[in-house]
Design a protein around this nucleic acid. Structure first.
Length: 508
RNA sequence: GCCCCCGUCGUCUAAUGGUUAGGACAUCAGACUUUCACUCUGACAACGAGAGUUCGAUUCUCUCCGGGGGUACCA
C-alpha cells in the first residue's frame, strides 16, 4: 500500500530555480498575464534563482510590435525585472522564437530520425471521416492512422502533392506528474492522441517550440496557466524524447496557476475591460497596489494580512502554497488595497506620481513635478496631506485639487453640489462674506477661519453646521465632496475665497 | 462521448481529525467629521450533497452534483 502523504506530495524545488515568462505578443497586457509573470518573478526572487523572459512570436497572424512594446512597458512599470532574455541577453539566446526557426527544424529532424515523431498526411476531414466510420465520436481526435504508413504509401501521398505534418508518437501508458500546486495528476493511457509539432509547410508549432526552448534555456520550473494543464502529458512525453536525444537535461517541474475569473464563471478575457492592465494604471492604480492585489489571487502571506510589499512577498513566496482554485477579480477589493498603498507613499512620491494624472486632466501645466510652476508645487504640497488619505486611485486627485490650484473667481457648482444649496444659502453666503472680509491676511489660517465661521454662522447665525458650511464649500470647490474646508480656504487665500463666495451668491 | 482540474461567508482567503470555522473586501448599523474620505465599534454571512473510515469529520476515501478547461495543422 502506498504512503498517502507521498501520493499527494508536492515536489521540492530544484537547487537553482530557473523560471520563465514567455508571452505571445498579441493584444494589450492583461491582468492574468501579469499574475503569471508576478508568480514566476516571485518564485525566482525567493529562491535567488533565474528569471528568463522570452517572446513566443510564432503566430505571425496575431503577433504585433505594438503588443511587444506594451508588454515591455508593462513589466517596466510593474518593476518585474528579469535576468536573462529579451533586451538583456543571456547564454541561450536569441529570445525571440521568430529568430529560432533553424533550431526547431533541427530538433524536429532529430525527433523524426529517431522515430519519436512521424510524418502524417491525414487531413482533418479524413480523420473525422475515419472516426465516424469506426463508430467513434466525431471529436475523438487523431486516430494514429499514419503511424504505420509504409514508404510506398508515403510516396503515393507525395505524388498527390501532399506534404506531411509531423506528429509526436504518444506511448500507450499512463502519464503522471507531480504538480507544484495540485499534487499528483494522472492521465490515462490513450487519452492523449499523437499531436502535431510541425505543420506541412514547415512551421513549427507551440507544441514543439515551447518545450524545446524551455529545454535549451534549462528551465526547470514551469509556472503557467491551468489552461495548459491538459497539454502537460504530451510535453512530458516530448521531454523524455528530448532527454534521450541529449537536447534536454531534465524534465521541468510544473505548476499550473488557477485562472483569474471575470464576471460569472468565465475566465477574465481580453475583451473584458477589467482585464486591461493599462486601463487600471490610467485609472490611478499604483504598481504596489495592483501587484499586491494580484498576489492575493491564489496566495496569501499570512492568515490575517492583506497588505504587503513586494519585498515581503519575495521573502515569503512559495509556489507550493498557491491555491488551485480559480479566483474572481474583484475590482472593489483591488481598489481598496490600492488605497492602502497610496496612503503608504511618502508625500513627495505621492505628488510626483499624481502629476501625470493632474496634467492629463488639464489641472496643471506639465506632466512632471520638476516642470511645474512654483505656485503649483506650493499648492500641491499644501494640499497633499488633505488629499492623500482620501483618494483610492490617483485618478481621483485632479478632482480633489482642481479648485485649489485654480485662481478662478467663480466655480460653477456640479449638479449634486448645487442640490446641497438650501433656501438659506444666500443668507449664509452674505454672513460668511461679512465675517471673512474683516480677517487680516496674517490671520488667514485654517484654524482661526474655522473658529470665526463657527462663531458667526453657527453660534450667532443659528445655522446648523451642515447648512452653514455647505454653501461655503460649494462656493469654494464647486463640489459636494472636497478636501477639508478650512484648509482649502487657507490654500486658495482670502481674495479668491471672497470672490467665489460673492459669485456663487450672484449665481444662486 | 472521452480526458483533466476545481468546490470554506456575495468575493479573496486562513485554520483544523475535536474551535463559538478566523481575517479582508463588499453590505448594513453606529461613533468621529462641515461634506466625502480616513479611523474606530458592532452586525450580517461559508465548509455543495450522500455514503464510508473514526469515539468524533469541513478536514481522509468513494460516489454524485455543480463549475471550468481540453479533446486544433491556436497558444
Amino acid at each position: 500500500m502506498r504512503d498517502m502523504t507521498e501520493e499527494n506530495s508536492k515536489p521540492a524545488l530544484p537547487e537553482n530555480v530557473r523560471v520563465r515568462f514567455c508571452p505571445s505578443p498579441t493584444g494589450t497586457p492583461h491582468v492574468g498575464m501579469v499574475r503569471t509573470a508576478l508568480f514566476n518573478w516571485a518564485a525566482a526572487r525567493h529562491t535567488h534563482g533565474t528569471f528568463v523572459f522570452r517572446i513566443e512570436d510564432t503566430d505571425n497572424e496575431r503577433d504585433s510590435k505594438e503588443s511587444l512594446d506594451q508588454i515591455l512597458e508593462a513589466l517596466d512599470w510593474l518593476g518585474l525585472t528579469w535576468d536573462e532574455g529579451v533586451n538583456v541577453g543571456g547564454p541561450d539566446g536569441p529570445y525571440f522564437q521568430s529568430q529560432r526557426t533553424d533550431i526547431y527544424k533541427d530538433v524536429a529532424a532529430k525527433l523524426l530520425a529517431a522515430g519519436y515523431a512521424y510524418e502524417s498526411f491525414s487531413t482533418a476531414e479524413e480523420i473525422a471521416e475515419r472516426n465516424v466510420a469506426a463508430g467513434r465520436p466525431k471529436a475523438f481526435g487523431y486516430d494514429g492512422y499514419d503511424r504505420t504508413l509504409t514508404e510506398e504509401q508515403k510516396a503515393a501521398f507525395r505524388e498527390q502533392g501532399r506534404k506531411p505534418a509531423l506528429r509526436i508518437k504518444m506511448p500507450e501508458t499512463d502519464v503522471s506528474f507531480d504538480d507544484l500546486i495540485r499534487g499528483r495528476i494522472e492521465f490515462k493511457a490513450g487519452s492523449v492522441p499523437d499531436y502535431v509539432i510541425v505543420r506541412p509547410n514547415g512551421d513549427p508549432l507551440y507544441t514543439l517550440t515551447n518545450p524545446v526552448d524551455d529545454a535549451l534555456m534549462r528551465i526547470n520550473v514551469v509556472l503557467r496557466g491551468e489552461d495548459l494543464l491538459s497539454s502537460t502529458p504530451r510535453q512530458i512525453v516530448l521531454y523524455s524524447y528530448l532527454e534521450k536525444l541529449g537536447i534536454a537535461e531534465t524534465t521541468p517541474l510544473f505548476g499550473h496557476l488557477p485562472y483569474v475569473m471575470g464576471q460569472g464563471n468565465k475566465k477574465l478575457s481580453k475583451r473584458d475591460p477589467e482585464s486591461n492592465l493599462f486601463l487600471h494604471r490610467d485609472n490611478g492604480f499604483i504598481r504596489e497596489g495592483l501587484l499586491n492585489y494580484l498576489a492575493l489571487l491564489g496566495w496569501s502571506i499570512a492568515p490575517d494580512r492583506d497588505v504587503f510589499s513586494m519585498d515581503e512577498m519575495i521573502e515569503k513566496f512559495d509556489v507550493r502554497d498557491v491555491k488551485a482554485n480559480p479566483a474572481h477579480f474583484d475590482i472593489d477589493k483591488a481598489i481598496s488595497i490600492n488605497a492602502e498603498h497610496i496612503r503608504l507613499l511618502e508625500q513627495d512620491d505621492f505628488l510626483k506620481r499624481s502629476v501625470p494624472y493632474l496634467h492629463k486632466a488639464g489641472v496643471v501645466s506639465a506632466s512632471a513635478w520638476d516642470e511645474l510652476t512654483g505656485h503649483e508645487r506650493e499648492v500641491l504640497t499644501a494640499a497633499a496631506p488633505l488629499v492623500q488619505p482620501r483618494v483610492r486611485l490617483l485618478g481621483e486627485v485632479p478632482g480633489m485639487v482642481a479648485s485649489l490650484l485654480s485662481d478662478d473667481q467663480y466655480i460653477a457648482p456640479e449638479a449634486d453640489a448645487r442640490k446641497q444649496l438650501k433656501a438659506s444659502a444666500g443668507e449664509v453666503l452674505d454672513a460668511a462674506i461679512a465675517a471673512l472680509s474683516d480677517v487680516p491676511e496674517t490671520e488667514w489660517k485654517a484654524e482661526s477661519l474655522h473658529e470665526l465661521l463657527t462663531s458667526k454662522l453657527v453660534d450667532e447665525g443659528g445655522y446648523k453646521p451642515r447648512l452653514a458650511f455647505g454653501p461655503v464649500r460649494v462656493a469654494v470647490s464647486g463640489r459636494r465632496v472636497s478636501p477639508p474646508l478650512f484648509e482649502s480656504l487657507e490654500i486658495i487665500g482670502k481674495d479668491v475665497t471672497l470672490a467665489r463666495l460673492a459669485n456663487l451668491q450672484k449665481n444662486l
